[in-house]
Nucleic acid binder design. Sequence first.
DNA 1: TCAGTTCTCAAACGTATGTTTCAAACAGAC
DNA 2: GTCTGTTTGAAACATACGTTTGAGAACTGA
Lengths: 225, 225
Amino acid sequence: MAQSDTVDRILDAAEELFAERGFAETSLRMITSKANVNLAAVNYHFGSKNALIHAVFARFLTPFSSTLEVAFDELEQKCQGQPPTLNQTLWVLTESAIRMPQRNEKGISIFMRLLGLAYTQSQGHLRKFLEQEYGQPFSRFMSLLKEATPELSAVDRYWRIQFMLGATAFTMSSSDALIDILDNKLGVQASVQEIAARLVPFLAEGMKAPDKLQVPPMLSGTTVA
Amino acid sequence: MAQSDTVDRILDAAEELFAERGFAETSLRMITSKANVNLAAVNYHFGSKNALIHAVFARFLTPFSSTLEVAFDELEQKCQGQPPTLNQTLWVLTESAIRMPQRNEKGISIFMRLLGLAYTQSQGHLRKFLEQEYGQPFSRFMSLLKEATPELSAVDRYWRIQFMLGATAFTMSSSDALIDILDNKLGVQASVQEIAARLVPFLAEGMKAPDKLQVPPMLSGTTVA
DNA sequence: TCAGTTCTCAAACGTATGTTTCAAACAGAC
DNA sequence: GTCTGTTTGAAACATACGTTTGAGAACTGA
């Protein structure tokens, strides 16, 4: 074989361990042990641990961003000049993520967790890498959101987008654990797809909320800022 | 002084550094340098790095959970048997957090970020510690949420609470950065209080959303699971 | 077959970490 | 002033990390 499968074994192991434990808490020795590969192989094939992290993201994000661009194209084409609705936009994103070809049964949830970690763990190099490589589809999604919510002020929209990102990143990044807890507590099985189907209307409704908080009358004596 | 201020200097430095960089990425040497304290002081006063992390949380959470219990008592008393509404419950929690006495101008945002990290960074010992020490007020909050949303099924409520937690933890944990970005982009000043005032209605509205996603007609040919 | 390249392997390197040690400095009580 | 328990200080400890090395194996193309 021209390129050994060592590279893929490393990527598989790294992906799973990073998702489980975070980046700083996962050592190269854990990765190479899990992958049944020599320690030096990581630096030989990738150059450094940071480059390995980038490669893990690139393996998923590159095909995903292509899929997404196509899906956005189709959406805009079908809408014929009309701006897509909020529900449509959110759902196209969600569906593109869900329908990505998955390497194993954990599939999407591993990657959602990695994306969540990318946000929450400082890791300056990662943020820079993601912005540089995949900033474009993200910008396009933001534009669609803007067109879908013309009634919102820029400030309102800004904050509510952050709220949406938070709910999504947080939930998806712990989706496995949350699914388990639900099963234990209520004996209900769930899937990432179902979480998404529940998340989208929650987000869409939140985006349409009335302007700002009316302090409940019973608390109106207190200062609010 | 009976107890030197070394302990507080360590806690102050640790709190700030943990919030900035996470737990694993912050070394004891960074902390003791910032605190102008000898390296060994951490292990002398706290016993271990993990115990220091616990102490950082306890310093804030212990008074906060007392405040919260009182606030919940007052709320239930005022409602005279009627279950408090969702908005009231959320706002009492928010207000209790905002009105906590703050050590400095960063105040609440530092702690929100720490709470967010506690969720997202694995740190099994921390999760166990928080559950054990502060599980009670959390359970009470959950009960109030349940009473405030009798129309929701248990499963719906479960997921939507996760969405709320996510939006809150995520936004608050990056509140400083988000406030800066908003200022740069739109020239608008904001405060943690204002974020809260915008977050509460977003969450409340999301909680009341219609049941589940109706797949948009234009996409109904696709499988949804 | 054989030269040239690509890859693997065990071992080591330098550095950073959390923790421990033990002597010195300090505090308050008598 | 001396004694006792508490706190600090500089140094070292053991361990784990990411990375590098250089020799050998495995593969490639002619």
